[in-house]
Design a binder for these strands. Structure first.
Lengths: 345, 345
DNA sequence: TTGAAAGCGTTACCAC
DNA sequence: GTGGTAACGCTTTCAA
């Protein structure tokens, strides 16, 4: 493997000149720049990442912290990861995977070893054990998800309150006067993931405003529990039932569960919900679906992280950004997308 | 951040002793070892990854190369990634994500910059453009998927031929005398992913052996195309139809498509197939499903890579390993798992 | 506009 | 058993 020394020799310049040609951190005469670039090309030189990190104290790597919990919707996770990786590359950074297999020790490790310059944490919970760790580490970090105590942290997420509202609005627009919100998983009920609460809040407010009645029926992620919840709803409702869910897993199962009970979704019952995986939308044609815009959320997460990393400011105040969902697919109609991000605080 | 120099000072030893205590590469007296370990603990010392990589010429990182093609089943991909990351950590290595956004240039980059010591490539195609690149780079690499020309490469995959056989055997056991294999996507038809061909080969052989008739109907990943294929099958078949597919996307859609046509899967029609995402199995209760054992495949991939990296042998012959699938879920019965990996060549 | 040289924090060889 | 020290390949200050 050629080194910058080799390049310097080949171009007849000093090693520092090679470095400056690559970084552009100081003016170089056209003439020598061309010579150096030619040598680089010729030798197919690539700087050694370790040496560069050592000297510059920057690894050009960002750590992506994933919770591999059984209740995660893997397809959605992957969606985020892909966008994050692509965006990072566009900023000339790479992604190091940090699974929470090692728990928050993994965080201390990757930061302690200076393997990465910043962190993105996914699926952040209401009271996330990773939060005190990150606070202590004083490393640039962005949280995807809104913890209960987000003071001083940089958080971004889909706006679930707005999503709840939108779902109920869709419900009302489809002439339902009552509906049921169904489905989140057992470990989430204890407000572990507070997006559920945010969703309910928005939905309830809209229900009150629009004069529709709304009930909540919890379910776990296994099929039996969802079936039981559906049966309870059907029994207790009058008219065409409407099912609303903020949970991708529930949404994926709902249509077939309804069909098994002789209800044709979209005709005998409405299914309204939202999920972060656009790919899954093709499977939910009978439903009205909001796009949680995972691409936007993850892209912004990366961009916020970069602004933090550049500022190099130890404590930049904290930021809370909510991305409004989009009605992407409305059962039985052509879909009119209406983008517009927004941020607060 | 404390350095090994600080540790040395605190423990009253030389820096090299600290290094040797950490690596265990030379005998250290009990006494000094304890002192050094105490100092490490005390200062919460962690070695700097960049410096370590520079000096040892090993980054302790493995590059995971993902194809983010639209036709990938993201949930399955994620499944693999999680296992690979966990296994790598168990060997004291980290995972760097290499999306093929940059194409095979990304490979040249991560290897050239010496960001990683080895590569795992996922979703390897029959004629994969990454193969000549990896060959040239002469870096330890494991392919998940079997390319047409696998000579000298280290490949591992699920045994799709066996899977095809098993599916047909399941079909015959359910008293079908004819069935149809349905669904792979347009870009895959051109033998891009040859697992389809392997699956068909196995299925055909079994069909011949068991005296059942079998036809192939291609479909794309969009719902309309699968529906058309199903309709064609229903029209042309006599008796209870059996649908077999090696494609997770198709399997997920099949049950509801059948129901829309008044066929209750498992009763009026059989759905038999296999997919790499165990999570999805809960959604496929009406089907007979083989587990492609993504956990086993990815675990072995990592282990093979480590043996290559240790050998440090530039050209270790090549290896082809096929993991037999497992009948995990048989419609309407309790499932008797029958494990046993195997390898060839 | 360019070069020389001092680090950056490890590892590993050579002495003792 | 242990310590000194020369790499490792880059960045960046200081001089010119």
């Amino acid at each position: 493997m050629p080194t910058s020394k080799d390049v310097a020799a080949a171009a007849g310049v000093s090693q520092s000149t090679v470095s400056y040609v690559m970084s552009g951190k100081r003016p170089i005469s056209e003439k020598t720049r061309l010579r150096v670039e030619a040598a680089i090309e010729q030798l197919t030189y690539q700087p050694n990442a370790g040496a560069r990190a050592l000297a510059s104290r920057k690894s050009q790597v960002i750590g992506l912290v994933l919770p591999i919990t059984p209740e995660a919707h893997l397809g959605s996770l992957m969606e985020f990861i892909a966008v994050i990786a692509a965006t990072a590359r566009r900023h000339d950074h790479d992604i190091l995977l940090v699974t929470d297999e090692e728990g928050s020790q993994g965080l201390e490790r990757v930061v302690g070893q200076q393997l990465c310059d910043g962190l993105i944490l996914m699926q952040v919970e209401a009271e996330d054990e990773r939060i005190p760790v990150v606070r202590k580490l004083r490393v640039p970090a962005v949280f995807i998800g809104i913890p209960d105590d987000s003071a001083g942290l940089n958080c971004i997420d889909a706006d679930f309150a707005r999503a709840g509202e939108l779902c109920v609005e869709e419900m009302a627009a489809a002439a339902h006067t009552s509906g049921v919100i169904i489905g989140w998983r057992p470990r989430l009920v204890g407000s572990r993931l507070n997006y559920v609460g945010r969703f309910l809040g928005g939905a309830d407010a809209a229900a009150q405003r629009l004069g529709v009645s709304l009930s909540h029926v919890p379910a776990t992620s296994d099929r039996g529990s969802i079936e039981a919840a559906v049966d309870a709803c059907i029994a207790g409702m009058e008219g065409k039932p409407a099912f609303v869910s903020p949970d991708m897993t529930v949404l994926e199962l709902l249509p077939r569960i309804l069909r098994e009970r002789g209800l044709e979704p979209g005709k005998d019952a409405s299914v309204i919900g939202m999920g972060p995986a656009p790919q899954a939308l093709i499977e939910l044609q009978e439903s009205t679906v909001l796009d949680l815009q995972p691409r936007l959320v993850s892209q912004r997460a990366v961009e916020i992280l970069f602004s933090l990393m550049q500022a190099d400011n130890p404590d930049p105040g904290g930021l809370l950004e909510l991305i409004p969902p989009l009605v992407t697919h409305r059962h039985g109609t052509a879909e009119p997308p209406v983008p517009v991000p927004q941020s607060t605080r």
